[in-house]
Write a protein that binds this DNA or RNA. Structure first.
Lengths: 140, 140
DNA sequence: CCTTAGATATAGCCAAGGCTACATTTTTGT
DNA sequence: ACAAAAATGTAGCCTTGGCTATATCTAAGG
């Protein structure tokens, strides 16, 4: 427990900003999935998959558009920009790796599925690399 | 990718509610630490450790009180209730276990410290138990 | 003892992410 | 072609968690 107050503040700040971007990552990932399955991401599907009301999904899409992650025309589906695709791809990789690591460490599949969703947004690149190395070692 | 839309919605709901309680857990954990070190948790120390402005900390304390997790009298320090202590203790255990698991899996110490803060709030009891078993096995 | 510095309280602002209720537009089915 | 159903848009409300600015109270120092 010998880390100073400043390090502690840094950790909390990091966790806070990760929480803030977690939703955007979830949306891009979901939109990528829906587009792959159905050719487009409809607002109503987004809302249902996220378990929220559609106006909430509409607001989120507005924000995605404002941040340059998605595009859409009135009464039409939602599509990712290149930046959005990149974020979705990164999220997908991270998600899969976290899930695999949980399994490798002995977490039951159902729990791993549930928990990976929350954990993935807090895994740094460095930690992710360590996960990858650990998994490779195990398989090798 | 064969999980239905409903499971997906459940996962997202779970992650959302965990995000909501994450801050409360962070505060109780921090207040417990400060109380242990200084005999009481001053608002100004809470704010500095969290890296936020003190009115924000004051609001958070109000919420802790409203939820029955802490008590305080005007212009005095903040103290945890039994429920607050319990939450802090649980958070501490989880935090330590997550940190240890990250180390065991090969994550460098600094990254493990940083990431554990965010990850701990998304680890279910079942996953936690698996972590514990994994660590025990490694030591044994 | 009384001033001043430090800590706490309070008011009011903002954005995000939920919601319901209602309006409009598209799609579908007869 | 048109009525009904489904999807989308929009308005307005709430809570949370940030912030700054200002007021008040407590604690320290001279």
């Amino acid at each position: 427990m010998s880390d100073g107050v400043d390090n502690q503040a840094d950790r909390f700040s990091k966790a806070r900003s990760e929480r803030a971007s977690a939703l955007l990552e979830d949306y891009t990932e979901l939109i990528a999935d829906l587009t792959e399955e159905h050719g487009e991401a409809r607002l109503v599907d987004i809302a249902r998959a996220m378990g929220i009301a559609h106006p909430t999904a509409a607001k989120a899409v507005s924000r995605l558009k404002r941040e340059g992650l998605a595009t859409s025309r009135p009464y039409r589906g939602v599509f990712l920009t290149e930046a959005g695709e990149a974020m979705a791809e990164k999220a997908r990789i991270r998600h899969a790796l976290v899930f695999d690591l949980l399994l490798a460490v002995g977490v039951p599949k159902e729990a791993a599925e549930l928990d990976a969703e929350g954990i993935e947004h807090h895994v740094s690149d460095e930690t992710l690399a360590a996960f990858e190395a650990f998994l490779k070692k195990g398989r090798g």
